[in-house]
Nucleic acid binder design. Structure first.
Lengths: 226, 226
DNA sequence: ATTGACTTCCTTACAATGTAAGCCTACTCT
DNA sequence: AGAGTAGGCTTACATTGTAAGGAAGTCAAT
């Protein structure tokens, strides 16, 4: 009896002496799984397997799969650094970069965000902190709304493009050539021009466009400060 | 026999005297279905039902569901007007507005575009035409790339936000209050400020932010012209 | 120490999905 | 007339989310 109670409350000894399952562990594993294998390979059964548990056991920690997805997105927001300091431009730039990094690390997140509409705790906190940063660094309430919408739209939209266009690594030229070949029957003079003069010229990385656009957007945002 | 051949080639008389099924009809019905009932209610079985046909019959016109989704997206691009005229700013603004209209008409399209990466015929044509417009109205090849990326990122990103934020109709105040209530335990001073001073002040429609940001983006794009 | 509530796991079961395999029939072409 | 094909149908299977309920352990109160 003394021995029996040596273990913490919820320790189980049943099949395998595994660590107690918690909501956080479930969400974390789900994130890891989606990161590693993609969103469509994340099923309750497979997630359970990874945690050494049957699928239905997960429902003790998460009401259903969409709630799990919401929690996963919230986790991503938790990873996103919030802007700090007094320099509005530096702060916003950092936030944009952090946002992009987080959403690239978790490629599934954009897709999930898009379909769900229930922001979680960390998400809300992140928004509040960013709004606070804007207010603090000289934006009126109105301007804050415009600035936030513009900046966020740009970052999210760029990420969306990045996921579609396959020009972000060394294989860009091949892919570009492939697309042209595939539609060889159609007249595509301008696409061909862009491909040959920019993409195939070498050294083109679509990811570099991010900074170009970001600077322009930040200029625009700056103009909103009274 | 003379009577028999009165009908066009593929007319069937079998169970119901329905019109011949074509790939276009399938895609069109799929788009209509997704528009009306949402992407997740679009299944091959339900689509077949709508067309008076069993699910497997659809596979004679479309190789698989993902190809169908690709075709649906392509259809949306086909609806998107391409920029025309000599005025770069007017042309780009029109295109952005058309793009937004098309993607709002077909709320599922963004989500599908995000997961697929194989552009179709109409999509490629649209890109080519837009690139052509930029080149024609005074953008260098390089500047064209930057301008296109920036503008598209903004429009897509804004749409993504629009789908998340539920502030685009008269219920905005209720929703805003609901979010604050739900997280009442957390300190959210800046969100509360924004809600009370902007959203709850009445007359706030997030959709209006589109034009504000678009003008700023167009200013920025204009700066890219030589 | 016994009881009863509660947690956390499991098993079983069901409906819905995409789609492979193969059959049937009417039309087209020779 | 006979062969080939196109386009429909039926059947079947693996995979999904999850409802329902059962078993075993832990805890609080008696």
């Amino acid at each position: 009896m003394a021995e029996r109670n040596r273990m913490p409350n919820r320790a189980r000894r049943s099949p395998a002496d595994r660590a107690p399952l918690t909501r956080e562990a479930v969400v974390e594993a789900a994130v890891a799984m989606a990161d590693a294998e993609g969103l469509d390979r994340l099923s309750m059964r497979r997630l359970g397997e990874r945690l050494g548990v049957e699928a239905m056991s997960l429902y003790h920690h998460v009401p259903n799969k969409t709630a799990l997805l919401d929690a996963m997105v919230d986790q991503v927001f938790a990873e996103m650094a919030v802007p700090q300091g007094d320099d509005w431009r530096a702060g916003l730039r950092e936030r944009a970069v952090a946002q992009r990094a987080a959403l690239r690390r978790h490629g599934w997140a954009l897709a999930v965000m898009e379909s769900r509409a229930t922001p979680g705790y960390e998400t809300i906190r992140h928004h509040d902190a960013t709004l606070g940063f804007l207010r603090r660094t000289g934006f009126t309430v109105r301007a804050t709304g415009h600035a936030y919408a513009l900046l966020d739209a740009y970052v999210m939209g760029f990420l969306l493009q990045e996921q579609q266009l396959p020009f972000d690594d060394a294989s860009a030229p091949d892919v570009a050539a492939g697309i042209l070949d595939q539609h060889a029957a159609v007249e595509l003079p301008h696409l061909a021009e862009f491909m040959s003069e920019v993409v195939l010229a070498g050294g083109y990385d679509f990811a570099d466009e991010f900074d170009v656009g970001l600077d322009l957007v930040l200029d625009a945002v700056g103009g909103l400060r009274t």
